[in-house]
Amino acid sequence: MSNAETIQHASETARAIEAATARVLVGQEQVVRDVLVALITGGHVLLEGVPGLGKTLLVRTLGRCLSVDFARIQFTPDLMPTDVTGHAMYDPKTEQFRIRKGPAFTHLLLADEINRASAKTQSALLEVMQERQITIEGKCFSLEQPFMVLATQNPLDQEGTYPLPEAQLDRFLFKVLIDYPAAEQEAQIVRMILDGTIAESLNVEGLSPITDAAGVMAMQAAARSVTVDDGVLDYALRLVRVTRDMPGLVRGGGPRASIAITRAARANALLEGRDFVTPDDIKSVARPVLRHRIALSADAEIEGANPETLLDRLLDQVEAPRQ
């Protein structure tokens, strides 16, 4: 199979997954697209939105479409690191210690309300995300690929939470905002629930798997073969570097942001069925990549600015690449 055919096949598969997920998660097309781009890139996603917008449904649907394992951890203040990674326990029958693997040993992990847990537990998970391996009692266990964490946090009700440190936020490829669906789409959701087209209890058994773990790995490999022109690469770098000196920002994106934006742009190009990256790909992934990597200055916040408005300004002002 030639490279073009590989990319074409991977693109069709990805779009089929996107279409199937979007059918279940009505009104969140951009969220589905971003999550799928992150999956193909091999990154992790931080989802921010109020409860009840379908975050769990999204992960369940993805797990079903990809035919991979799925686990969910509800983060609470008393959650311990071993509750995430696993631990060694003494088995009286065999009189030996037995390794009990935690929920992190999965393909898709939904870390619900990650900012509710203590910094120690958050660090344990974020280490898993970075290393893709877990060490229990000195023994190292590699996680099965693909491995993707979808962590959620609630923008409201910040009382008693532990905000993620900047260094750990950087480990998420994307920060995706989930907003309420539009009125028409919300009406469609209600109608589908009433008709029984989709189950109210997040039952996704009706969906048929589209690919498997190997298929996901193939998509990731195909994305790595997408070419990036020097002009486009320069555009991505300029976008990130401007954030470091931009008025209204005290912290901009680091080199990890430059890498993330280019890798995610390749995945986006793959989803579009192209084997090359265009400036549009860079722009479409710039917001979720940079959103959690920039910090507003105090005066910008007082003036009512938010990361979205500043990123919009950034994308408008940074010149598109010349060719």
């Binding site: 400036p279 549009d280 722009k283 408008d316 002002q317 940074v318």
Partner: peptide
């Protein structure tokens, strides 16, 4: 159109 607009935009 602005300086940041791409071909598709």
């Amino acid at each position: 159109v602005g300086p940041g607009d791409t071909e598709q935009e």
